[in-house]
C-alpha cells in the first residue's frame, strides 16, 4: 500500500571528542597570533570536533563509529528496534573505505540485516540526497521504516606535520572550515499523530558546463606517489554561486508546495561557515523564519549538517509550523533542500 505521509520519527547526531577552539587549532598549526582573530572575523566558526586527537595524531573515531552512535540514538529515540528497519540510506563524501561501504558496516553493528541499503557518494547535499531516496522508497509502500544516515570524517586529510606558511589559500581554508560528525534520522511511513512530516525533497544537479568548486582526490597503490594535492577548493566560486543557488532551491521548494515566504517558521540554511551562512540568510530574506544553524559550534560537518540543524529544531516545532532546509553541493553543483510541516 502506497504511503501518503512520511514522518520524522527521531533525529540524532554524534560528534567526536571535545570541541576544538580556534586558539587550540592555531597552536596545533603553529599559525601565529593573528590566526585566532582572523578566524573569528572572517570565518566566525568558534569550535569544531575532530576525529583526530590533535595532541597525538591518533585517529580515535571512524565515520562508522559516529554513524553507529547517531543511528543507535535515533532508533532508541524513535522506539524502533533494529529488526523493524527495512531500508538504510547513507550519504557521505568520505567513507571509511571504498569497500565495504560504510552504510553496511553501520547496519551490521546496529543489528540491521536482510534489508535494502544504499550509500550515496555525495558532497554537501548528501543528507538531502539520502532523504530523497528514502522518502521516495517509503512513498511507494515497499518500505515502512528507513534509517537515513549522513556524515563525514576528514582525518585522512589532516596533516599535523604541515608548515602553516606553505598552505595554499584553499588548503588553509579547509583547516578552519571543517569538522567531523554524523547524523541519523528515522523516517516512517506510519507517522504518529502530531508528527513532523517530510513534505518534499529537492535534489537538482546544475553543474553542466560549470567547473568544480571543490575536488577531493583518492589515491591507491598505483598513484600514491604522484604528489598531487588531495584537496582543491575554489572558494571564490563557492562564495559567488552558493547564495544564488540556495535562493533558487528555496524558491523552487516553497513554490512547489504552494507556500509563501511568510509561511515559513524555520529556515535551516547552508552551513559553510558562520559568515557565509549570515550572508546567505540575508540574501534569502525570509520575512519571519527563525534561522536554525549549528556551524559555529560544529564546524562544517558536510553530510551531517542538516541532522544537527534538525536536532536543534524538531522538538520546537508546534502544530502547523513549517520549515525549509537548503544545502548546496559545490564540487559539481547541486542545489537541494526539503520542507517539513508539523501535523
Amino acid at each position: 500500500m502506497a504511503a501518503s505521509d512520511i514522518g520524522v520519527a527521531a533525529v540524532a547526531t554524534a560528534l567526536p571528542g571535545p570541541p576544538i577552539d580556534n586558539a587550540t587549532l592555531g597552536r596545533t598549526l603553529r599559525a601565529g597570533g593573528t590566526f585566532e582573530s582572523w578566524v573569528d572575523t572572517f570565518i566566525g566558526t568558534s569550535t569544531r570536533h575532530l576525529a583526530m586527537d590533535l595532541e597525538t595524531g591518533e585517529v580515535r573515531f571512524s565515520l562508522a563509529d559516529l554513524a553507529e552512535t547517531a543511528g543507535r540514538k535515533a532508533l532508541s529515540a524513535a522506539g524502533v528496534a533494529p529488526g523493524e528497519v527495512d531500508l538504510v540510506v547513507m550519504g557521505t563524501s568520505m567513507p571509511d573505505s571504498l569497500l565495504p561501504t560504510t552504510v553496511n558496516v553501520v547496519a551490521d553493528r546496529l543489528g540491521i540485516d536482510g534489508v535494502a541499503t544504499y550509500q550515496l557518494q555525495s558532497g554537501c547535499t548528501g543528507a538531502m540526497q539520502a532523504l530523497d531516496v528514502a522518502h521516495q522508497m517509503l512513498l511507494t509502500g515497499r518500505h515502512r521504516t528507513a534509517l537515513v544516515l549522513g556524515g563525514d570524517v576528514c582525518a585522512k586529510h589532516v596533516d599535523l606535520g604541515v608548515e602553516f606558511e606553505t598552505l595554499s589559500p584553499g588548503e588553509l581554508v579547509n583547516t578552519v572550515l571543517f569538522g567531523d560528525g554524523a547524523g541519523a534520522l528515522v523516517l516512517t511511513a506510519d507517522p504518529a499523530a502530531g508528527s513532523v512530516l517530510l513534505r518534499r525533497v529537492l535534489v537538482r544537479f546544475v553543474g553542466r558546463g560549470r567547473a568544480p568548486g571543490q575536488i577531493v582526490e583518492w589515491f591507491g597503490m598505483g598513484d600514491r606517489h604522484e604528489q598531487r594535492p588531495a584537496l582543491h577548493e575554489d572558494f571564490k566560486a563557492i562564495e559567488e554561486h552558493v547564495p544564488t543557488l540556495a535562493a533558487q532551491a528555496l524558491t523552487e521548494l516553497i513554490e512547489a508546495q504552494g507556500w509563501q515566504p511568510a509561511d515559513l517558521d524555520y529556515l535551516l540554511p547552508p552551513q559553510l561557515s558562520v559568515r557565509m551562512t549570515d550572508r546567505i540568510v540575508k540574501h534569502l530574506a525570509l520575512p519571519r523564519a527563525e534561522e536554525v544553524s549549528c556551524v559555529g559550534e560544529t564546524g562544517n560537518t558536510a553530510n551531517a549538517l542538516p541532522f544537527f540543524q534538525l536536532e536543534r529544531m524538531l522538538s520546537r516545532m508546534s502544530s502547523g509550523q513549517r520549515a525549509v532546509a537548503v544545502a548546496v553541493e559545490s564540487s559539481k553543483w547541486i542545489k537541494s533542500g526539503f520542507v517539513l510541516e508539523a501535523a
Binding site: A31, G32, T34, F35, W38, F42, F164, E165, L167, P169, L172, V173, F235, K236
Partner: peptide, 12 residues
C-alpha cells in the same frame, strides 16, 4: 586578493 592572503601575509 582575498582575506586568506591577508592572514598569510600578516603571519609572514
Amino acid at each position: 586578493w582575498d582575506s586568506l592572503h591577508m592572514l598569510r601575509l600578516v603571519t609572514v
